[in-house]
Design a protein around this nucleic acid. Structure first.
Length: 523
RNA sequence: GGCGCUAUCGUCUAGGGGACUAGGACGGGGCCCUCUCAAGGCCCAAACACGGGUUCGAAUCCCGUUAGCGCUACCA
């Protein structure tokens, strides 16, 4: 970006012709043929380049392609664009698979590796050479660079001047025999290139603003636009849905489709996702890799739901949705043109929503590994006390926004001993002797309760509070601290029940001992 | 620089000429519930970028300006 050369290239102009046609049905009528075909059996693909992690923006693009395919009963394919060998890595490819798997964005058929299609790319380039829609260019990169600089110094914009298109056959033959390196350039025809974008309506580019771009490098490898078009044709892609940073590539690609005598797909250009400062989402905005969220313990359904709402709206103020609901509701009408800003706060809220709604059976297998690695449980405990364990999760998830919150809150129900939070002690056990006294009385009341059930336990404690002439909270808060070591927890009787009589009474006894031992070190 | 895309509360958005004193959600503030914290319920603050048109009437249509972003390679 910093190395951008001012005025170094031809400008591409887009003239947007807006026309809107009533509701959804008519919306598709404007390009009847391609559109109805697309609606019938759309074939879409997600085509990331393996040069980093699966980015949330990429995940959103994949999601929209996937949703579209599902909604319209089509196919969703995956292609890894690994033609840039210098930047592509296997780890990145791995990360893309992992991210997609985690999100549940499954694709059909085998993964297509673009690098494996080299021969076809070359064949297509050669075909264009033979049909006269492309030509050999012997200009070197250094020469081109020089001309660009010259143009810049004259404050002119640079566009390749087609000088090699005027070479005679004799010269071409001679230079080839001499072994001079050359690239293949596509010859931009006269006219205007336009298409009906699924999200932007009609976009059209005067061809004069396009440059005779390179399609095959001097080392005979394809340039992005050729590789994409060649592969999309070969894969039978009928709807190309991608980021709107590709809008300016689209006219070139359309010209390539024509030169290769192939049917055009429908194009849909999705808005970008930016960080809170309005700039392109990057590392400094915090977690941007899908894997980061996976490891933070987010629910994939929440991530997907949140991402879906960035650039798409189902209408009717719908927000929290399951995958099936999103598939049902997903149509291009709700697609947005404006770039969206990634708000981590809302993601967190969304996760909390999903956390309290997903079936427990779905939640449990995701949380348990974290519980185990936190040293709280082992698989045997989970299996032996499954019913108890599930209701504990159910109790904790209400006030959690992430899995980590659940794990953090789960300690008091498993650990042998607990630490007392200093702030909570200062607040609820301010007077140590009095606290010890209250807890001892509380313990007796609890122990004497007719049954270890919420109602009788509550009755006992409220009676205790009344007999001592204090508010119930004056009993509950010190007890909460004794039981959990914290000043916040689920309802105190739920805690009592989940811990069970023995553990609860032991906790209280430990607290009394602690208070007596520490009675001199008062605040 | 050139070309393009975009423009409704801080953020995600509803809105398709009169139903707009512009609706919902996140975040913020307040209240209720209440044993704490969440969750939940209720309430408040908060936006049509600006300027011209078209029209009886414009957030909605057109033009311009401004701003943000994108592209501008033998990267993808």
């Amino acid at each position: 970006m910093e190395t951008r050369i001012e005025g170094s290239n031809p400008s591409l102009s887009v003239t947007r012709v807006r026309f809107r046609l009533g509701g959804p049905a008519l919306h598709f009528a404007k390009t009847a043929n391609t559109m109805t075909d697309t609606l019938r059996r759309p074939r879409l693909r997600f085509a990331p380049s393996p040069t980093g992690y699966l980015h949330v923006g990429g995940a959103r693009t994949a999601l929209f392609n996937w949703l579209y395919a599902k909604h319209f009963d089509g196919e969703f394919l995956l292609r890894i664009e690994d033609t840039d060998k210098a930047r592509s890595t296997e780890e990145s490819t791995r990360a893309i698979f992992d991210g997609l798997h985690w999100l549940g964005l499954d694709w059909q058929g085998d993964v297509v590796y673009q690098g494996a299609n080299l021969e076809r790319h070359q064949r297509d380039a050669r075909h264009m050479l033979e049909s006269g829609t492309a030509y050999r260019c012997f200009c070197t990169q250094a020469e081109l660079e020089q001309r660009r600089k010259d143009a810049e110094s004259r404050k002119e914009s640079f566009k390749y001047d087609r000088r090699c298109d005027r070479l005679t056959n004799e010269v071409i033959e001679a230079r080839m025999t001499a072994g001079d390196p050359y690239v293949i350039r596509f010859r931009i025809p006269e006219g205007t290139t336009s298409w009906d974008d699924l999200v932007h309506d009609t976009i059209s580019f005067p061809n004069k603003d396009l440059e005779d771009f390179v399609i095959l490098r001097s080392n005979a490898t394809p340039i992005y636009n050729l590789a994409v078009v060649s592969d999309d044709i070969a894969m039978g892609i009928t709807l190309v849905m991608r980021g709107d940073d590709h809008i300016s590539n689209t006219p070139k690609q359309i010209l390539l489709y024509r030169a290769l005598d192939a049917d055009l797909p429908v194009f849909a250009h999705l808005p970008m996702i930016h960080g809170m400062d309005g700039k392109k989402l990057s590392k400094r905005h915090g977690a941007t890799a899908v894997g980061d969220y996976q490891h933070e313990g987010l629910l994939p359904g929440a991530m997907l739901n949140f991402l879906a709402l960035l650039g798409w709206s189902p209408g009717e103020d719908r927000e929290v949705m399951t995958m099936d609901e999103m598939i049902e509701l997903f149509t291009p009408d709700g697609l947005q043109r404006k770039a969206a800003i990634f708000d981590p706060k809302k993601l967190e809220w969304m996760n909390g929503q999903h956390l309290s709604r997903v079936p427990l059976d779905e939640l449990e297998p995701r949380v348990t590994p974290l519980m185990i690695s936190a040293g709280l449980v082992d698989e045997k405990t989970v299996a032996d006390r499954r019913e108890w364990y599930m209701s504990l999760l159910d109790m904790l998830r209400v006030r959690a926004r992430t899995f980590d919150d659940i794990v953090r809150q789960a300690g008091p129900y498993f650990l042998d001993s607990i630490d007392y939070d200093a702030e909570a002690v200062a607040k609820n056990w301010k007077d140590r002797d009095a606290a010890a006294d209250v807890l001892a009385a509380t313990s007796d009341a609890l122990a004497a309760s007719s049954a270890w059930m919420p109602e009788p336990l509550e009755a006992s404690l409220r009676a205790l509070a009344e007999s001592r002439g204090v508010a119930a909270g004056k009993i509950f808060q010190p007890l909460r601290l004794a039981l959990t070591g914290l000043s916040v927890s689920p309802g105190i009787f739920d805690v009592l029940i989940m811990q069970g009589r023995d553990l609860a009474l032991e906790r209280i006894a430990n607290a009394v001992t602690w208070l007596r031992d520490n009675s001199h070190s008062q605040v």
